[in-house]
Amino acid sequence: MNQPPTLRLAALALALSVAACSWPSEGAGGLAERDLPATPAIEEAAATLEKLEARGADRFAAGDLAEARLILARASREQAGGLSVAAEQDLVRLRASFERIERRLGAAPPTPLGQ
């Protein structure tokens, strides 16, 4: 225990230098829409999208459907990537997009997401 003070100082410097170059944690969710497990809200949104597509949204509201897919993908990624607030915001956008598609399909608005 009677280490010289220089040795102690050297150990401290080494520890400091190692601690100084710490990296952030690993990211995830970059392609979350493909296979990562999703939250119920996202799953329901995905299901709604599929229903709309089945009702012909890919023909009668193709532009809005494409946009909705992108928003859904983005929301999924954000949810999986730890950006839950942003994911919520995108889900709101997604619902608006669904309503637009629904209007164009001439049907009743879809059931609100996440309920």
Binding site: P24, S25, G27, G29, G30, L31, D35
Partner: peptide, 20 residues
Amino acid sequence: ARVFDLVSFAKSGDVRKLPV
């Protein structure tokens, strides 16, 4: 901030490692 290990991804092909 998140880190993406391209080398590890290339080896594993695990898309879950892709960051947002």
